[in-house]
């Protein structure tokens, strides 16, 4: 799934393979042309976003339209990833939406403190889940205008 020198539209950072697949489906269903990249843990996510580690050969200019970020990630957790994204000049303007099962106040506040653009909880039932992802797509891919130079 390496995109070298290509632009990426959507970055999904999600460790649960079922959720990852279901989320990706919703995006693909509406627009096959969207470039989606799926990362399964926090460390890989950071490598990708900063063109380090196994993604060192990528160009660093990515500017995805949105990053969907789960909080419960192996290796480096979601809050840390968020913190790295929002504190680095190169990436801080990328819209990041936390999409997680946690509705704990502590997590919500931590995310906002770090500058998250939006915080959305994953619904328990599948129908609602699909609906939420669909609305996320509608908002962040169609409605929101990202900055061209990330």
């Amino acid at each position: 799934m390496k995109n070298q020198n290509d632009t990426v539209d959507i970055v999904i950072i999600e460790d649960d393979p079922n959720d990852a697949e279901l989320i990706t489906r919703v995006f693909r269903k509406h627009n096959l042309a969207n470039k989606i990249i799926l990362l399964e843990d926090g460390a890989e996510a950071l490598d990708f976003l900063f063109a380090e580690g196994k993604y060192a050969q990528n160009s660093t200019v990515l500017s995805p339209k949105v990053v969907l970020l789960d909080l419960k990630l192996p290796k480096v957790n979601g809050i840390e990833v968020l913190q790295r994204i929002k504190s680095d000049e190169r990436t801080k303007n990328i819209p990041v939406v936390v999409l997680t099962s946690s509705s704990e106040d502590r997590d919500i506040k931590a995310a906002y403190d770090l500058g998250v653009n939006s915080y959305v909880t994953k619904p328990i039932k599948f129908d609602d889940f699909a609906q939420v992802v669909s609305e996320l797509r509608l908002y962040w891919l169609l409605l929101n205008k990202p900055s061209e130079s990330a």
Binding site: N18, D19, L22, I124, F126, F129, A130
Partner: peptide, 20 residues
């Protein structure tokens, strides 16, 4: 209950995916 529900979501989701 939360942990029990998670696989259910996947089951419903993928069943729907097959249908679609």
């Amino acid at each position: 209950s939360h942990d029990l529900r998670a696989p259910l979501r996947a089951i419903s989701g993928f069943a729907q995916a097959v249908v679609e």
